[in-house]
Design a binder for these strands. Structure first.
Length: 623
RNA sequence: GGGGGCGUGGUGUAGCGGUUAGCAUGUCGGCCUGUCAAGCCGGAGGUCGCGGGUUCAAAUCCCGUCGCUCCCGCCA
């Protein structure tokens, strides 16, 4: 080894020891005759002190080097030290010395000591890095630069810590399932494409001209087949691939904790994961879990109160509905929306009645990307009259002239507004109103500092609809995936009232992020066949795409179910990262490119020929 | 597929129709034996992403394009 100790472990009790350290120069402080190097390795930082005069400071017994005298070796070390620059890789021989009284650095774990160098060797020189490695200045650097030099970005303390945290989390998860008799099984990366779900990444076959493998969107079918194989408890930290457009919390390849169990019900899977998350939180985070057992909310309740199936329950500001109140309103916006089958819901901006027009316009703009045409708003600037209605001077609103006194009183009552609050209303179809208000609620929460960054608010969302109607394709599609079982009592209405069928599915949500989801699966081939037919697949399509599953179900399939959790999202939440790129070693850009490797890239014509692939002219030249 | 934001020395930024393109940091040189974001002195470093247009004059206004990013659609 080129080191006897790490740069993070020496303490006052090591004083007098002869040591060799190796690492990167975090920073150099050159005082002329005295040079300080902060030497950094993965484990910490140690101050190395190099003097050009051995007469001073150096304890006699300290110098470990053999024949060479203190004076000359220190001069050598000093000469080298004056050439050294940031991020040089060096090796130091020296002795550990307790720092003089008053010169300790409490910021460093090793701050009680310093290593007095007797020899210094440059193992590797370094160009000046494109951004500062030490400290946190690198956080501000343009992400394109950081991604191009990812190996330097990962050297920065923040990313290095994120990777360490990720390692700890994955290690904890693995141990948790090892201890509970789960079998870790690797499933193939080269699988078969299916039209359900996300777009597949596809891999051409050389041996079979014109045929393609698909990378797994998740190991869903494989893990169910493992249940049929009788493994009972399977898990895997699995890489998944989805060829869809990216977001801060979505990358084309990502990692899931994937697990499946036989002879279980939804409550068993939920209890298992809940215990894991509680223990994981306690182990790796200082933040308290807001509520245990985790609250369980139905999908309908989540949509009603939060407008979204992944509610952030760290704060209140629940949505309220006034559809019935304004059904016959004089205000056309409300009346027409309801008449067209829409809903009218709202959210409160606490103490927002005095917001400027500009600020309110800002809220309206905020809501537009979600399809809302606008926001109706009522500021409660005064008190109600004796009869419970609100006189005009108690309100600030462009729409009160269209609303009846009872309507206003009803809206105020439904919103639970107090004096000084601002009521914000959206009238539109459900698919617009809910997302618009859900996101507006988050925006208000952020603006009013209601969202604590020091809480872990887990919750379960259950009783999802099994199916959803796809207008474009004029058919019903699976919300989760086609293997999810309906609730027992709902199988009877699968064909007649598909919209009312609820699934045996559950999502786990943390601080408004969906971190995982799963379901109890169908394990009978007749039910699975019914499901495929409900999804509009013909018998031949089913046979072609899922015949293997149906066949497998005929050889003794145990009841089973499971869950998958997004590792990056979990780590990002624990790391307080805004994007999962911050917790991945080598992430891709928002357009799916790798700026370090410059992928995707063109390949040789011979390679294409081998794969029986011809690239269309115009698309090739467009690149 | 659509919309928004950003792009100025290595990095972070100011400037937003006429400036020798400012500042900080880094970097290079000098001084310096107790610093730990060391300090002091001095220097170098910029096709203002790229292309086109408007104008007497463009970093600045307009159009296009590329890159990064956020969001909608898409995606569990």
């Amino acid at each position: 080894m080129l080191k006897t100790h790490t740069c993070g472990e020496l303490r006052a009790s090591d004083a007098g020891k002869a040591v060799t350290l190796s690492g990167w120069v975090n920073r150099r402080r050159d005082h002329g005759g005295l040079i300080f190097l902060d030497l950094r390795d993965r484990f910490g930082i140690t101050q190395v002190t190099i003097s050009d005069d051995s007469e001073l400071d150096l304890p006699n017994a300290a110098n470990p080097s053999n024949g060479s005298g203190n004076s000359s070796s220190c001069t050598q070390a000093h000469e080298v030290a004056s050439q050294v620059r940031s991020e040089f890789v060096v090796r130091v021989n020296g002795s550990v010395q307790k720092r003089p009284e008053g010169f300790e650095n409490p910021e460093l774990d090793t701050g009680e000591i310093e290593v007095i160098a007797s020899e210094l060797e440059i193992l590797s020189e370094a160009r000046t890095p494109p951004f500062v490695i030490s400290g946190s200045q690198g956080d501000e650097v343009d992400e394109a630069v950081r991604l191009k030099y990812r190996y330097l970005d990962l050297r920065r303390p923040k990313l290095a810590e994120n990777m360490r945290l990720r390692h700890e989390i994955v290690r904890f998860i693995r141990n948790y399932f090892y201890e509970r008799d789960f079998l870790e099984v690797e499933t193939p990366i080269l699988l078969k494409s299916t039209p359900e779900g996300a777009r597949d990444f596809v891999v051409p076959s050389r041996i079979h001209a014109g045929r393609f493998y698909a990378l797994p969107q998740s190991p869903q079918q494989m893990k169910q087949l493992l249940m049929i194989a009788g493994f009972e408890r399977y898990f895997q930290i699995a890489r998944c691939f989805r060829d869809e457009d990216l977001r801060a919390d979505r990358q084309p390849e990502f990692t899931q904790l994937d697990l499946e169990m036989s002879f279980v019900e939804a409550a068993d899977i939920m209890a298992l994961i809940e215990e894991m998350l509680i223990k994981l939180s306690a182990k790796i985070s200082d933040k308290p879990v807001q509520q245990t057992p985790f609250p369980v909310m139905s999908y309908d309740e989540a949509m009603a109160k939060y407008g979204i199936d992944r509610p952030d329950i760290r704060f209140g500001l629940q949505l309220f509905e006034v559809t019935d109140l304004v059904r016959n309103s004089q205000f056309g916006v409300f009346k027409n929306a309801v008449a067209a089958g829409g809903i009218v819901k709202g959210v409160l901006f606490p103490q927002g009645a005095d917001l400027s027009r500009k600020e309110i316009d800002g809220l309206i703009e905020y809501v537009k990307p979600y399809g809302a045409k606008g926001l109706a708003w009522i500021g409660l600037t005064g008190e109600a009259a004796a009869d419970g209605t609100y006189p005009a001077e108690s309100l600030r609103s462009p729409i009160i002239k269209f609303l009846g006194k009872e309507e206003i009183a009803g809206i105020v009552s439904a919103s639970d507004a107090r004096r000084g609050d601002l009521i914000l209303l959206v009238a539109d179809e459900e698919g617009v109103t809910n997302p618009a208000l859900a996101n507006l609620r988050l925006e208000i929460g952020a603006r009013t500092d209601l969202i604590s960054s020091d809480l872990l608010a887990f919750c379960w969302v259950v009783d999802f609809p099994l199916l959803e109607y796809d207008r474009d394709e004029d058919r019903w599609g699976a919300i989760h995936h086609p293997f999810t079982s309906a609730r027992d009592e709902d199988w009877s209405i699968l064909e007649q009232r598909p919209a009312d069928v609820k699934a045996k599915a559950y999502d786990i949500v943390l601080n408004g992020w969906e971190i995982g989801g799963g379901s109890i699966r169908i394990h009978r081939s007749d039910q699975q066949m019914r499901m495929f037919q409900r999804l509009g697949l013909s018998e031949s399509e089913v046979d072609e795409q899922f015949g293997h599953m149906l066949e497998a179900f005929q050889y003794g399939a145990p009841p089973h179910g499971g869950i998958a959790m997004g590792i990056e999202r979990v780590v990002a939440l624990f790391a307080d990262a805004q994007s999962i790129r911050e917790v991945m070693a080598f992430p891709k850009t928002a357009t799916g490119t790798d700026l370090l490797l410059e992928a995707p890239s063109l390949v040789e014509d011979e390679q294409l020929a081998e794969l029986h692939i011809a690239v269309r002219e115009q698309e090739e030249s467009a690149k």
